[in-house]
Amino acid sequence: MTPGIALIPTTAAGVHLSTGGFEAVVRGLSSALAALAPHDVRQLRTPPVIAREIIEKVGYHRSFPHLLGRVSARADDGAPAESDLVLLPAGCYCVYPVYAGARLESSTELSVEATCFRQEAGAEPGRLRSFRMREFVRLDTADRCLAWRDDRLAAARDRLAELGLETESEVASDPFFGRGDRMMRMLQVERGLKIELRAEVAPGQVQAVASGNYHTDQFGGLFSITGPDGRVAHTACLAFGYERLALAVAHRHGADPHDWPERVRKVLGLEVPA
């Protein structure tokens, strides 16, 4: 890519600097995706770290020990020690503790922006260890959570089409339940708990740029959240990766945003020539 929109590799694999042009596209994506939620939805911005006890409570450290980034500190005696923090692997993990022990009076939806980290083994285009996400999170009854997930996925496909992206849907096993055995993964796919929207981010490189996840009552049970129907709350989320989406748009339309179709520039709020 030209310097206008680019991720610049550093000495750490999967960690990049971004140019001003790239950041302008990310800001445009942030605004364009935020508009998918109701205007009065609760907005949250997460820090890049989360309490280790929360990640242990949801079992991420057992399911994905190879992806988790731990924070080291020094004990009082100067010896290395593990901090009470870990690097945040997904934005929605910050939401559930906020509602721990709550009885929801109505459907609850949030829009979350997060800086996340996963210790990925590969470093092909779009496979980043440090990346940013937009997530919409829903806490509700079982039927309304699933209907919301499917409705938001349809809206996401339409918005990505407005950016000129051709996406394909793929049912995948849901990482929120851990890797599990082969039978568990097959059951997850059969139930359609996770649906990815995949697009080409580089020549021959197709990756998930968004995903819709239905968690059933996994998190409602862990955090003792009661839904509007008096039962354990169900949850769902719709997540977008900013860097992957920016790479996908640049791959589709070229390196220079000035040459992108007017409709794409308009969706992203970029300057449109008169």
Rank of each mutant, 00 (worst) to 15 (best):
M1W: 09
M1S: 12
M1H: 11
A6V: 05
L7C: 05
P9F: 08
A12F: 12
A12K: 08
G14K: 05
T19I: 09
T19W: 12
G20R: 15
G20I: 11
F22V: 00
G28E: 06
L29G: 04
A35K: 07
L36T: 05
A37M: 15
H39T: 15
H39N: 05
D40H: 07
R42M: 13
R42P: 00
V49R: 02
I50T: 14
A51W: 10
I55M: 13
I55R: 03
E56Y: 07
K57M: 13
V58F: 05
H61P: 03
R62K: 15
S63E: 09
S63Q: 08
G69E: 01
S72Y: 08
A73F: 03
R74L: 15
R74E: 13
A75K: 03
D77G: 06
A79N: 07
E82A: 15
E82K: 00
S83Y: 11
D84I: 05
V86N: 02
G91Q: 06
C92T: 01
C92Y: 10
C94Y: 11
C94K: 07
Y96F: 15
P97C: 10
V98R: 13
A100Y: 09
L104V: 04
S106Q: 14
S107P: 09
T108C: 13
T108G: 03
A114V: 04
A114K: 02
C116A: 09
Q119A: 15
A123Q: 11
E124H: 14
R129K: 14
R132P: 01
R132F: 00
M133G: 02
E135N: 04
V137M: 10
T141C: 04
C145K: 06
W148S: 06
W148A: 07
D151A: 15
D151R: 13
R152Y: 08
R152F: 12
A154R: 14
A155N: 01
R157D: 03
D158W: 00
L160C: 03
A161L: 05
A161G: 06
L165P: 01
E166H: 04
T167I: 04
E168Y: 00
E168V: 12
S169F: 00
E170R: 10
E170K: 08
A172T: 09
S173I: 03
F177C: 02
G178M: 13
R179F: 05
D181G: 15
R182D: 14
R182G: 00
M183Q: 11
R185H: 02
L187M: 14
Q188P: 04
V189T: 14
V189Y: 00
V189R: 13
R191T: 06
K194S: 10
K194N: 12
V201S: 08
A202T: 06
P203I: 11
Q205P: 01
A210V: 03
S211T: 07
N213P: 11
Y214V: 06
D217K: 06
Q218T: 09
G221Q: 08
I225F: 14
G227M: 10
G227W: 06
G230T: 11
R231I: 00
H234S: 09
T235E: 08
C237I: 07
A239E: 10
A239V: 12
A239Q: 06
Y242F: 15
R244A: 02
L245M: 14
A246K: 02
V249Y: 12
V249L: 12
A250G: 14
R252S: 14
G254I: 04
G254T: 06
A255Y: 09
D256Q: 14
D256A: 15
H258F: 11
D259S: 15
D259M: 06
W260E: 07
E262V: 12
L270E: 09
